[in-house]
Design a protein around this nucleic acid. Structure first.
Length: 269
DNA sequence: AACAATCTCAACCGCTTAAGT
DNA sequence: TACTTAAGCGGTTGAGATTGT
């Protein structure tokens, strides 16, 4: 992973909250060039931030596909159930909540859900995260997690391997390209038949049906597609990717595009 | 109205892991 | 094989907002 091309200029990095200008610079840069090596992004984008800060800002705030706003009851339930099974594995929990970041889930848990759960079932909370549970009950519990977001179906990956400490994500040799691709867009990287995204002959298809009564379900920004997929330009992934989605020319005020709708919670960029 | 307490959430920190040299 | 470095993750912090007194 070492990246020789990454310069390390001795600059005094800015800290603290990001200004709208910084956001715009970072967003513009990544959408047109991709992030590549994060440590080189600040210099190239003209930002006085370190790469880590840029990466975090992108992932938690600027990245297309992020769903902001309050958690739905279904999302809450998913978080609580997954936390009961996984503990503080926020990134794994986030995989099952498209558009939510691990940071967001973590904050939501710490500020709200933890207290709520503690109030309702104190004894259960104390034990749940650290102790393995009956695998059969976990399995059935997991199936209950197949959740509908206001009639829009999301199938949650089965968690039957949690007891043994195995990865939550079923790995039927997923294509790493597709994995990165979707992880970048949506933090969803379970790319097998159990999940909502499928890998077919090296290309990526999307079966999400969050919004079956509209055409808004998946609309990656067209120009960003090509540039955003840094390092993937020579594969056929891009073409496949583009062909899978109906590309909309509609843009929002800030120059980005509607990507997803989740029931009542439309995501606007 | 003023202050304190509490809450929220963006961002930082430090550690671990993976991969390049 | 050891070293280096980027990326990822979870814990923590702190500023601003909100609520209570």
């Amino acid at each position: 992973m070492g990246c020789r091309s990454c310069e390390k200029p001795k600059v005094h990095y800015r800290k603290g909250l990001w200004s709208p200008e910084e956001d715009q610079r970072l967003r513009d840069f990544i959408l047109s060039h991709g992030h590549g090596c994060w440590s080189s992004v600040p210099a190239k984008a003209g930002l006085q931030r370190n790469g880590k800060s840029c990466r975090l800002r992108w992932i938690n705030y600027l990245r297309p596909g992020l769903k902001r706003g309050i958690f739905s009851a279904q999302e809450e339930e998913i978080v609580m159930n997954l936390h009961a099974m996984l503990g503080n594995k926020w990134s794994q929990i986030a995989m099952h909540l498209p558009g939510r970041t691990d940071n967001e889930i973590k904050n939501y848990w710490n500020s709200y859900l933890k207290k709520r759960v503690a109030k309702t079932e104190p004894s259960k909370v104390n034990n749940s995260a650290s102790r393995s549970q009956d695998s059969m009950s976990q399995s059935s519990k997991t199936r209950q997690l197949s959740t509908e977001f206001n009639s829009k179906h999301i199938e949650v990956v089965e968690l039957s391997s949690v007891d043994s400490g195995q990865s939550l994500i079923h790995s039927n040799a997923p294509n790493p390209l597709a994995k990165v691709l979707f992880a970048d867009w949506l933090s969803v990287d379970h790319v097998n038949g159990q999940s909502s995204t499928n890998l077919i002959n090296g290309s990526l298809s999307c079966n999400w049906d969050f919004n079956s009564n509209s055409e808004e379900s998946m609309k990656p920004e067209p120009q960003a597609n090509a540039e955003f997929l840094h390092g993937f330009g020579e594969s056929n992934i891009l073409g496949d990717f583009q062909s899978q989605f109906e590309v909309s020319g509609q843009s929002s005020e800030n120059g980005l595009f509607d990507i997803l709708s989740f029931g009542d919670h439309d995501v606007i960029y």
